[in-house]
């Protein structure tokens, strides 16, 4: 895995192994928040920022603190603490400087902590043994891919608001079907590059 070009990783993590559409990560907020394009964009930006930041920090902690002391098994706890602290920081900064964005994201910012995509990227980074530059590319790419998916979904969902949908399928059911169709479309990219 060491020889893969970071740009390929960046590209692949946006399109071919998209966090949501190929790895099912970050589904919870994906379904709950994707009703409006504006909110989705805000959350997408926040996720991209947090995922890049935490991947870098987690890389440094894992390779310079945990591995030398043989404490790899503690990585779950360490990663989640890093993520929680980082999200807290971002929340304070946004509240101070971008109050509008803060109000529109409201409750969802703290929930980034339990967004599976964030922890998932850090865990994938360890499992796939990425180098520092590769990890940065992977973090940015995953965030962008997540944003792309949630933006596309919220766009489709806004159009669907007036559509007649069977009662049992309303809400999450139809959202999952749309996501499935999007995943199907993204499989078309899979011939270009692959990092798995």
């Amino acid at each position: 895995m060491m020889e893969v070009n970071p740009f390929i990783i960046l590209f692949a993590s946006i399109f071919t192994s998209n966090m949501i559409l190929a790895n099912f990560l970050g589904m919870c907020s994906f379904i709950a928040v994707s009703k409006e394009i504006k909110t989705s964009l805000g959350l997408g930006q926040a996720v991209t920022f947090v995922v890049t930041g935490t991947t870098v920090i987690n890389y440094l902690i894992y390779h310079h603190l945990l591995v030398p002391f043989g404490l790899e098994y503690l990585r779950f706890i360490v990663f989640i603490i890093t993520i929680a602290a980082f999200v807290q920081l971002v929340e304070m900064v946004i509240e101070r400087y971008l109050p509008n964005l803060y109000y529109s994201l409201g409750i969802f910012l703290p929930l980034i902590t339990v967004n599976c995509a964030i922890l998932g990227v850090s865990l994938f980074m360890v499992i796939r043994d990425y180098s520092f530059i590769q990890s940065i590319a992977f973090g940015i790419g995953s965030g962008l891919g997540w944003t792309l998916a949630i933006l596309a979904l919220s766009g489709i969902r806004q159009k669907l608001q007036k559509a007649p949908i069977p009662k049992g399928l309303q809400g999450p059911g139809i959202t999952l079907i749309i996501t499935g169709l999007m995943a199907l479309a993204f499989i078309g990219f899979s011939g270009i590059v692959s990092i798995q």
């Binding site: 790895n23 099912f24 399928l169 059911g173 999952l176 079907i177 996501t179 499935g180 995943a183 499989i187």
Partner: peptide, 13 residues
């Protein structure tokens, strides 16, 4: 992956 999404949607339905 799409199979999982569709299957899940059907089960929820």
């Amino acid at each position: 992956p799409p199979g999982a999404f569709f299957m899940m949607a059907i089960l929820i339905w």
